[in-house]
Each structure stands twice: as structure tokens, then as C-alpha cells.
């Protein structure tokens, strides 16, 4: 490979010479990598706007009902929330290590790090499920069964708070589930030895996605669990 920018390529996906992962319509690996990175970042921009809608709604209602929202956030379990925050931050580390291992060509380390990430992700979802169960048991799920244990004057805006809580954390959890799905594909492909130090774009792009989902939680945690807890 004298010039990586001008690799020969063959018919429909299968290069005549050159590595098998250069798709037929790209001129070079550099071009292919640029396209993937730009595409992933653009996708994350759409994700920011997607969550942005909910964050906007949250901000407006928090502005309208500050006392009720502060009161409602006292019904969150901060210990579980903090644990989950820690779990996700560590999972970001293991994910970064997986990407690093792939880039450094240490193919044996990829799968353990991916598995650790998946384990932590599952732990997060497990803890989240416990929290949900508790909330539902205490009639904090909005709708006809909602019953607010705090001062009744706050009951209705508090229901709004829990509507937002379930919508935002639910959407986040859905992203976690999708992330776990992507990671399991990566594990399977890694076992087949698809990724090399030279080409591991899927791992890198999945890493970006995973970090993004973690960052969303980093915003959700203080907004839903912490702000206003100590206001009286």
C-alpha cells in the first residue's frame, strides 16, 4: 500500500485488491473514515435536539412551578441515583478502554472491556428498574393512580414533574438498551476478528454514542434528583 488514498477497488463491496473493509464507492480509507466520523457527529447533534425538546419542556415547567418541583424531587432516591451515576461514569471509562485497545491493536482486550461496559450498562438499567418499581408502588406514576404523598398543594405540578421524570429517564433508558444491543454486535464481530488496529471504526463510533448517552444522564441526574432538594 504505497498510497492509502488511492486504493484500488472492485465491484459492489468486494475490493479487487486492498482491504475488505474499503467500500466500493470510496476512493480511500481516509475518505471512508472522514465520512463515518462526520456522520456519527451529525447523528449525535440530532440526538441533542431530540433530548433538547424534553429539556426545554422541563426548564419551562420548573420555571413555572419551582416549589412543587423542588418538593417532588425529594421523592427521588438520591443514593440509587448517585450509584447509577457512578456506574455510568465507570462504564464510559471501560468503553474508552475498549476503543483504546482496538486502536492500539490489542485485539484480545477488546472483548473484556466491551463486556465490562455491557455489565455496567445492565447494572444501571437494573437499578433504574428498582427505582421505577418503587415509584410505581408509591403511586408516583402519573395518571389515574397517581397519589402524591407530599403537601397536596403541590400535587398537580408534582404529577407534571413525574411525567417529565418518566419521559426523560425512560427515553434515556431506551437509548441504553439500544447501546447494549450495539455493544453485543461489536462483541460478536470482535470474536470473528473483524476489527484491527487499522480499521475499527464501528467500535470508535459506538464509543461516541455510549459517551453521549452517559452525558445525557450527567444532565438528568442533577435536574431530577438534586436541584431544589434543600429548598424549603
Amino acid at each position: 500500500m504505497a498510497d492509502p488514498r488511492r486504493l484500488p477497488h472492485g465491484e459492489d463491496g468486494g475490493p479487487a485488491t486492498g482491504p475488505g473493509y474499503l467500500q466500493h464507492h470510496f476512493e480511500s480509507l481516509v475518505q471512508q473514515k472522514d465520512a463515518s466520523s462526520l456522520g456519527m457527529w451529525l447523528f449525535l447533534v440530532t440526538e441533542i435536539l431530540f433530548f433538547g425538546g424534553l429539556f426545554l419542556v422541563y426548564t419551562i415547567y420548573r420555571w413555572s412551578y419551582p416549589l412543587a418541583f423542588a418538593d417532588a424531587s425529594r421523592h427521588m432516591d438520591v443514593r440509587l441515583g448517585t450509584t447509577n451515576t457512578a456506574v455510568l461514569i465507570i462504564s464510559s471509562l471501560t468503553m474508552a478502554m475498549a476503543v483504546h485497545s482496538a486502536a492500539a491493536g490489542r485485539r484480545r482486550l477488546i472483548i473484556p472491556f466491551l463486556a465490562a461496559t455491557m455489565l455496567l450498562g445492565t447494572t444501571f438499567l437494573g437499578i433504574k428498574a428498582i427505582e421505577y418499581t418503587e415509584h410505581i408502588r408509591h403511586h408516583l406514576f402519573p395518571g389515574p393512580w397517581f397519589h402524591y404523598p407530599g403537601p397536596q398543594i403541590h400535587a398537580r405540578p408534582a404529577e407534571l414533574f413525574f411525567s417529565l421524570y418518566f419521559a426523560m429517564t425512560g427515553l434515556h433508558a431506551l437509548h441504553m438498551v439500544i447501546g447494549l444491543g450495539i455493544l453485543s454486535v461489536l462483541v460478536v464481530q470482535s470474536r470473528r476478528g473483524r476489527y484491527t488496529g487499522q480499521w475499527h471504526t464501528p467500535i470508535e463510533m459506538s464509543g461516541l454514542y455510549w459517551h453521549f448517552v452517559d452525558i445525557v444522564w450527567i444532565f438528568l441526574f442533577p435536574l431530577l434528583y438534586l436541584i431544589g432538594r434543600h429548598v424549603h
Partner: peptide, 19 residues
């Protein structure tokens, strides 16, 4: 209807909603 939204200074949050 939504007594908690704008509570007057110096009063307790005791008013029920009439919704």
C-alpha cells in the same frame, strides 16, 4: 386552580386546589 404556582410570601402552603 394551581395554588402552589405563585405562593404569597408569609403564608403556609395549605390551600387545596379547586380544580
Amino acid at each position: 386552580l394551581m395554588p402552589s404556582a405563585k405562593m404569597v410570601a408569609g403564608y403556609q402552603p395549605i390551600m387545596p386546589t379547586f380544580q
